[in-house]
Design a protein around this nucleic acid. Sequence first.
DNA 1: GCACATCGCTGACTAAGGTCAGAGATCGTG
DNA 2: CACGATCTCTGACCTTAGTCAGCGATGTGC
Lengths: 291, 291
Amino acid sequence: MDDVAALRRFNRAYTQRIGVLDDSYLGTGRPLGPSRFLFEIGTQTWGVLGLRRRLGLDSGYVSRMLRQLESEGLAVVEADPNDGRQRTVRLTPAGRREWRRLDQRAERLAQRLVAPLSDRQRDELDTALATAERLIRAATTQFDAVDPRSADARWAMDQYFAELDRRFSDGFDPTGVYDTDAAALRAPTGAFVVLRSDHETLGCGGVQRVDDATSEIKRMWIRADWRGAGLGRRLLEHLERVAREHGRSRVVLDTNGSLTEAISMYGRMGYQTIERYNDNPYAQHWFAKDL
Amino acid sequence: MDDVAALRRFNRAYTQRIGVLDDSYLGTGRPLGPSRFLFEIGTQTWGVLGLRRRLGLDSGYVSRMLRQLESEGLAVVEADPNDGRQRTVRLTPAGRREWRRLDQRAERLAQRLVAPLSDRQRDELDTALATAERLIRAATTQFDAVDPRSADARWAMDQYFAELDRRFSDGFDPTGVYDTDAAALRAPTGAFVVLRSDHETLGCGGVQRVDDATSEIKRMWIRADWRGAGLGRRLLEHLERVAREHGRSRVVLDTNGSLTEAISMYGRMGYQTIERYNDNPYAQHWFAKDL
DNA sequence: GCACATCGCTGACTAAGGTCAGAGATCGTG
DNA sequence: CACGATCTCTGACCTTAGTCAGCGATGTGC
């Protein structure tokens, strides 16, 4: 298996050198942990719980770091107005200054690192790293089952509907679909998943029951700037797997003629054109696949 | 300066995920330090001093780690036969087994990471990472002034002479040049530098005095598999800088007609053809540049 | 053969980074 | 309003990773 040799070679070469970027946290008179944490807070107000989950840190450890940042006047921790158990954190002006300092340190280190390269080489490096980042993020994108009424699901669906509205010749009217979806795209007979990378939502999709043997795939959407990274294929495979887990032997879906990329993907993935099976006014093509 | 935005974005995306590759050292029932050290020893016999320098570790810390590896029967530490103060270390069969285990762990982690990608995407990732690795290593290559009689210098010159022998139509006879170079390419009137990346030597080059106003550039060589990464240009600039530091206002050099890449680089770098200035039997072109 | 440098080892020490259990406050549900 | 669940915080504790000074053995230059 030489598949991953390049990855491993790169990793060894990289961590030794660019690990230096993390050293930008050093020499700030503050240990690495709190520095990194401060940097992660950045300019937003975060729920402490979410931040902790994202960084995978222990509750006690985070609490102590917050006390330290507070005592240095860099951050303020307040109760979450919606949930008195949770707390939120944001940087004070002094904290933001410190954040900028760290940011500039990292910037300078990065610049010093590429300084010996020619302009053309720097462009080449930019391109290579952007490509690698995209692929690595695509590879590590998570498919999370969520409630269709959750904030993430709602956001993704809104993006999806907005795009439909732009692309369909007569626009798209989402009236009523939230409620329908909320009921249909849930366990035990349905599901809704969002694609997540870092704290970004990259896409969504759902399945719902048609009859005991059949599920319908709905609301499949990938963010425009993430298309072509293979996420659509993997999402479709994922939803088919979910349908199988629901005991179905067949999936169906409908689509509008303007969604050409989607239509060609369905073809590649083994979907066959079938007769109209519903009265969706926006649908112009109907597909099915045996699982 | 958006120059380094891609680098920084990549770094954030990468370290969070591929940092996982370093976690392959974890769960071995041994702390990270000794594991990493064991892996670094690998299949060779190393001088403890060299290993320590390479990894930048404290003498006491290393000593303790060696005692631990010894007590677990993974490594043997012996006196260096050439220097009773120094010690050497190598892995026992059990140590090599442990090394293979770590290697396989990292391999599996890397494979799992890229598993969701299609074959085409994996190829794309390989290419992007190989490009990035090459550029990053090129950018961080060190130019170290060394004695021309040192082992590294000797190795690089041997490579260089072997290549000349292959490329010159009548071959190349290095008899006597080692002694001449040993005298000429040294402080205070000369210099010899080797290009290093990790523990590899990627190239070499030297300058020697011609007269108080003039230095000659000699033995410029870049490893064949590292050409095109801009190292030649940087080496030439480096040697010109050294000549300036020696108070020279002009550099000269000679070359053989078969070294076409070198000749075109001299042209790009502002060198002008001049008359024969020496009786080097292999030289067919002579160049000069005012500093 | 002497002075001095170098190398490895040991003991003593430290900071960083983190884990764990339990207490107290608050929320959601019936 | 009672009950269990959830979140934060604190105190106690631990390992890891590393530093530093000094000692003894060995090498190098004169």
